[in-house]
Structure formats: C-alpha cells, structure tokens
C-alpha cells in the first residue's frame, strides 16, 4: 500500500512541480473563460437566425449544425492547426484551439437554443404580438426567457463538455492542464501528475455534474 501511494500519489513530485501544474490549470481556465462565451454568442446568433425563418438560410444552418455534430472536434483542431500553414497563415496553438472549439460549440449551442425556442407554444408569440411587441422584442422578452429555462440542463451539459474539450489543446502542444501533467510525468518518471490532473478536473467539474443530474431529474419529473 505504501509503495502504491508513493507511486500514484507521490507528494514529493507534486511539491516539486506544482508551479507547472498550476500554470497548466491557468491555461485551461483561460481557454474555458474565452471559448464558452464565444460559443454561446455564436450559438445565439444561429438560433436567432433560425427563429426568423428566412427560408433560404435554414438549410445552411441545419447543415452547419449537423456537420459539427458529426465532426470530431479533435479532427477539426488538427485540420485547422496543421492545415492553416499551407495557406501561408501560421496559427498559434491557442488561436487554433479557440477557433476550432468556438466553431464546434456554436453548432451545439445553436441546436440547443433552437430546440428551446421551438418548445414554446405559438400562443406566446401571438399574445406578445397582439400587445404590439415586434417579433424580435417578443423573442427577447417573452420567448427566450422561457426557452432558456426549458433547455437549461442541455446548456449546462454542453458547457461541461466544452470545458472538458479544452484538454484537446494538449495535442497541439498548448501547455494546459493535461499537457503540463504529461510534461511533469516525463520529468518525474511516475504517474502522479496524470492522476493529479484527473483529480483536479474532477474537483473542478464535479459540482457541475451534480447540478446537471439534479436539473435532469427535475425535467424528467415534469
């Protein structure tokens, strides 16, 4: 048992290398803080465009959403990161990650919000219009607030997945939490840093997972 602890929870290693791990966590948080709002904003745009029912637009929006639901984000990231230099543009790993995950999550957020808006009965729009509100005003003040409440679990779930997806950045050498752990593992010759990274992710995202379970159960019992 002692040697097991020494191997997998080696405090010595953690004490020695914690600055590297901490910097990694910093990058992870930075990515999350930038990408989540950008993806959400782009998703809102998609859902709003869809809501306005411009007939020529709808197929493109559906194609966009379905394409990114079918396309693994890591493939997208590699495509952007390895592919861009051939166009004469060299992207930093950071930019590549932000672009890839924003494009990807915009599709998901867009689809969730679209479904949310579609879940609100036509009567709400009719009532709002009958009191003189414009379509956009009705969307903003009447439809959207109800829609958001309806799809809150899906939004939380997608945000959780997005934060987890920042770990893909490690593949393009961005030293976020996972990559930092791998680096330290290489220096210390034991798996403690990897285990520590897993635990940090767990502690960071567990509250979100619990919240999600509760929200999903509340929806299910409606």
């Amino acid at each position: 048992m002692g040697s097991f602890t020494e191997m997998f929870f080696n405090l010595q290693t953690l004490i020695e290398y914690w600055p590297i791990m901490l910097r990694g966590l910093g990058w992870t948080l930075l990515l999350a803080v930038i990408i989540v709002p950008m993806g959400l904003a782009a998703g809102m745009l998609i859902a709003t465009l869809n809501f306005l029912r411009r007939r020529w637009l709808t197929p493109f929006l559906i194609a966009y959403v379905d394409f990114f639901r079918a396309f693994p984000p890591l493939v997208l990231l590699i495509f952007i990161y390895n592919g861009a230099p051939f166009l004469g543009v060299t992207l930093s790993p950071f930019t590549a990650v932000v672009v890839a995950l924003t494009l990807n999550s915009a599709g998901y957020y867009g689809e969730i919000l679209r479904a949310g808006l579609a879940s609100i009965g036509r009567g709400q729009m009719e009532a709002a219009r009958s009191t003189g509100l414009s379509r956009l005003q009705a969307l903003r003040f009447i439809i959207a607030p109800q829609a958001l409440r309806n799809v809150l679990p899906e939004l939380v779930s997608n945000t959780l997945e997005l934060v987890k997806a920042t770990s893909l950045a490690s593949v393009v050498t961005l030293p976020e939490l996972l990559r930092s752990a791998r680096i330290v593992q290489g220096m210390a010759y034991n798996p403690t840093p990897l285990i520590a990274a897993a635990l940090i992710y767990f502690l960071m995202l567990w509250p979100l997972v619990r919240l999600l379970s509760r929200l999903e159960r509340r929806v299910a019992s409606r």
Binding site: F4, M7, F8, L160, K164, A165, T166, S167, L168, S170, V171, L178, A181, R182, Q185, N190, P191, L194, I195, A197, A198, Y201, F202, M204, L205, W206, L208, V209, R210
Partner: peptide, 23 residues
C-alpha cells in the same frame, strides 16, 4: 459515474495508457 462524467475522455485515456503500466 460522476468521476467519468467530469474528467475529460482524453485524460482518462492518458491515465489508462500511461499510468496503469506503473501498476
């Protein structure tokens, strides 16, 4: 279940591949 839902898949794969050999 919570653990596997909270930890990124890539981290789980890395742990399985790089950490398990130590065990």
């Amino acid at each position: 279940v919570d653990f596997l839902r909270a930890v990124p898949p890539l981290v789980v794969i890395m742990c399985a591949y790089f950490a398990l050999p130590y065990a």
